[in-house]
Design a protein around this nucleic acid. Structure first.
Lengths: 131, 131
DNA sequence: CAGGATCCCCTGTGATACTG
DNA sequence: CAGTATCACAGGGGATCCTG
């Protein structure tokens, strides 16, 4: 076994440094949720995702996709055509999450206004001390 | 209506700058999930949370609590005793999220190892090109 | 007990420009 | 089309020390 492999093995063991909060941070991160939900209906191309995930920049979409690929949540397939074509598809592990993430977005949409207002109220109370 | 109130109203309208992804980022953030789940069973004190949420620092716990309070997800009650006592309790809006968040943590725990391994594999493949 | 204040590094993020 | 490279800057996050 190579030194590199030993390092990786040790990482796996030591990786209580990958607690649940880390995992959640990845799958439920700002952009990840949108990407996963958008990729739910089947293989999706980069540009489709770019349009589907509201407000994401090219850069962040790329980074998010890489992260999700790394975590084994989606598979990236490159078609060596001209122009290039790349498709992203959820893995089974990711699919298990779909219901949960949809609940999350549903909740967020239901209470968006309430939260925005709560925030404004809070700011008003805590800023009025200084203003 | 005061100028300040008008400003706030305008903020509310303009606040498409508070899309769903922002809300999700708050409630499903790295520490938020742990805090919300830990506060599920009733009013919780600061130190209890500190112990319950694995790996969180004093600073981040404070910031997370403030953020959640600001969003109207939990209520902070200060008892003017010596030593001081502060309790945090979920609001109804937050309680609606509990099931979803629990599904999230369950999923994360179920697949923690799979993800860690996928990561190691990915790193090995993409690093071996350079190493 | 429950933070607040400060220092400081690192990552997240947008903007912009370039490429196979 | 699907990215990569670079810059620049705010915010995340740990460490440490201080307080009502």
């Amino acid at each position: 076994m190579s030194q590199r492999n030993m390092d990786v093995t040790r990482q796996l063991i030591e990786q209580e440094a990958c607690p649940v909060s880390e995992v959640i941070d990845h799958v439920a991160g700002k952009w990840s949720v949108g990407v996963i939900v958008a990729a739910a209906h089947g293989p999706v191309r980069f540009t489709e995702l770019e349009r589907a995930v509201n407000g994401v920049s090219r850069r962040m979409l790329t980074l998010t996709l890489r992260k999700l690929e790394r975590d084994g949540l989606l598979v990236r397939t490159v078609y060596p055509t001209v122009p290039p074509k790349v498709e992203y598809e959820l893995t089974d592990v990711a699919r298990e999450l779909l219901d949960t993430l949809r609940q999350l977005t549903d909740w967020a949409e239901r209470h968006r206004m309430t939260i925005t207002q709560a925030r404004a109220t809070y700011d008003l109370e805590n800023e009025s001390a200084a203003g």
